[in-house]
Amino acid sequence: MSTTAIETKVALDQALDLNTAPRKQSSVEVTDYDNRQTVGKITVDNPKMTCRGVNVYYGEKHAIKNVGLDIGANEVIAFIGPSGCGKSTFLRCLNRMNDTIPICRVTGQLRLDHDDIYDKSIDVVQLRARVGMVFQKPNPFPKSIYENVAYGPRIHGMVNTKAELDDLVRESLERAGLIKEVEKRMDEPGTSLSGGQQQRLCIARAIAVNPEVILMDEPCSALDPIATAKIEELIDELRENYTIIIVTHSMQQAARVSQRTAYFHLGDLIEVGETDQIFTNPKHKLTEDYITGRFG
């Protein structure tokens, strides 16, 4: 890293003074439902993404309220919370998918490494190549399996020859654990696969671009337990190379795959911490209610 880059980082870190987030975090136990200060440590040692004072509005509706959170490199962090609390909304801020919704407005600071992702100088095309996304419902394109995976590399001009592309596609399918099942049927349409296979195809499609972060919005909610187990396994393997943020409604899943967990409630980030701690020893009353099933 050159000196200028280091200077920029320092300057940015100062600008991103944690004090700008108006709430101070407490780690004491909160038994008060009205207390919406984030409990737990929102910072990490080597952040991949940092968010401070993020607010999201859908027209008049305030969907995310002043959320601050760091996402560490090569970690899997799970977002949990009752339906409609803003998990998807927050997730979609991280690769600016919210830009496709005209009434949606985002304020605050979100950074990927040292780039402010809502800055004018940042190109969404590039951002989304760096921050991939997997959706709740598998959405393979109506093309062949091969073309589905090759789509990203092709549009970004990542490869120069057909052989390279072949390698990249195989590689991605292999990493997504799908290669054995589709090796012989690369030219069949992606939609001819089973739901679980389709979702893994979508993961392969996302990792073919070789992103730095992968966002997953309830990737298993449309799948049966066996397909779910396969995807969870896959997430664990992918952690080696990628940072993964996963939204889930399944507590068990969060516990199985993630190192940290963040609990959202009505647009507020209520508690964030080590997954074990959140599930065994929640510090906020709201978190506890949710974990123990008294809520939602």
């Binding site: 190109d123 095309v125 590039q126 190549a129 760096r130 990542m158 990249l168 590689e171 070789n210 730095e212």
Partner: peptide, 10 residues
């Protein structure tokens, strides 16, 4: 394993 630097490629 493709180059890690997607940023530059894009």
């Amino acid at each position: 394993i493709p180059s890690r630097d997607i940023k530059t490629i894009v």
